Amino acid sequence: MTAKPLSHHVARVLLMGVLLLGAAFFLAPLYVMVVTSLKDADELRNGNLLSLPGSLNVSAWREAWSSACTGADCSGLRPFFWHSVWMAIPAVLISTAWGALNGYVLSLWKFKGSETFFGLLLFGVFMPFQVVLLPMSQVLGWLGISSSIGGLILVHCLAGLPSTTLFFRNYYAAVPGELLNAARLDGAGFWQIFLRIILPMSTPIVMVTLIWQFTQIWNDFLFGVAFSGADSKPVTVGLNNLANTTSSVKAYNVDMAAALIAALPTVAVYVLAGRYFVRGLTAGAVKG
């Protein structure tokens, strides 16, 4: 076995150095947020952004959660956080199931004009959401669900439908037609094939869509600020209100703790299920 040339080892060292530098640059804001959220007011005034806290102080986290002011209300992020939970979970599940059914029909039960319908549906992937704010607000008003969590659920289901349909349609396009023909010969119908054959083999793309939709819905600010009421504002709106509430002394540690609280669910989802996201993508989620 011949030894690898020195240039190869130098290239690997340079590559690792560039990657580590990029990772450090990307993680530096997160580090600043974490250490700042664990400091008290005296440490913030006397230290610097990169210094470690003298002790683990979680008072800023408690204040951000339960007593920080978000405008005139001083109940912290807790109510906004639960609004996002009650909104995100049904919106993610409904939009994923809806997209799976659309993808199933558009790939395996094609009808006349299905390709045209799919092409028109894809306009929703590229359309700026600002365009639909006014007509959507009118529709929510007609339905009597404006400024409510139910209205936000409907908005996010409709906004996510083009993406979820695209994911499932492209994934199901790789399913052999012979499999469906064999099932039909055995007497299986539309729903039997979908529930007993297609869904059990859809775990990778289901995980991709669940993670994608949860991230998009939880992190959304535009729809949250446009369509929510006093009792339905999501955590992103609450975080914005908290950060923009003025006081005699700016509590940066509370702001950082609040930002981390708002980000924790999406971080947890990627930590716990990130490997399934990668597997789903490589299994055909973005193949044409």
Rank of each mutant, 00 (worst) to 15 (best):
W191D: 05
G189K: 04
G22E: 00
F81P: 06
A100T: 08
I149A: 10
L260C: 05
V58I: 13
V278G: 00
K250L: 14
F81A: 13
A259K: 12
A11Q: 08
A258C: 06
L30C: 12
V18M: 11
K250F: 13
F214M: 10
A251V: 12
A182F: 01
N253H: 15
G144Y: 04
L166R: 02
L222W: 05
L50Y: 06
V132R: 09
S66D: 13
T36P: 03
L27G: 08
D255P: 04
W65D: 02
D231V: 05
L44T: 01
R184D: 03
E63K: 05
S148P: 05
D186C: 11
S148T: 15
P204F: 03
P79T: 02
R279A: 08
Y252Q: 01
W109R: 14
A100C: 14
Y104G: 12
K233F: 10
L281M: 09
A72C: 09
G76L: 15
V271H: 06
G76C: 13
L120Q: 07
L108A: 03
R196P: 09
L264T: 09
D186W: 01
D73G: 05
V13D: 02
A183D: 01
R275I: 03
L133C: 07
Q192Y: 03
V92C: 13
L195S: 15
T209L: 01
L49S: 12
R12S: 15
T282N: 15
F118Q: 07
M16G: 03
S95Y: 04
H83L: 09
D40E: 01
A28E: 12
L239R: 07
F223W: 11
P53Q: 04
A268I: 14
K233A: 05
R45T: 12
T215F: 08
V267F: 14
F227Q: 00
G17W: 06
L133K: 02
V155I: 07
A183P: 08
P128M: 11
M87K: 07
S37A: 06
G284P: 09
F126K: 00
W86C: 13
S75C: 08
L185K: 01
G189P: 13
P200V: 03
F111C: 08
Y270C: 10
L210K: 04
L199K: 08
V34M: 03
S84T: 12
W61N: 07
L106T: 00
I261W: 09
L272D: 11
P5R: 06
Q213E: 08
F80I: 02
F214I: 01
L21K: 13
W218N: 07
K287R: 10
V92P: 00
R275Q: 00
F167Y: 14
I193R: 00
T245H: 11
A262N: 04
V269D: 04
N48P: 06
R275D: 11
L281D: 10
L6R: 15
L185W: 12
I153E: 01
S228Q: 05
S247T: 12
G103Y: 07
G160E: 13
S228Y: 12
Y270V: 12
L158D: 05
M87C: 09
N244Y: 06
S59G: 15
A97M: 14
V155S: 11
G284I: 06
I193T: 10
V225H: 03
A243N: 15
T236R: 02
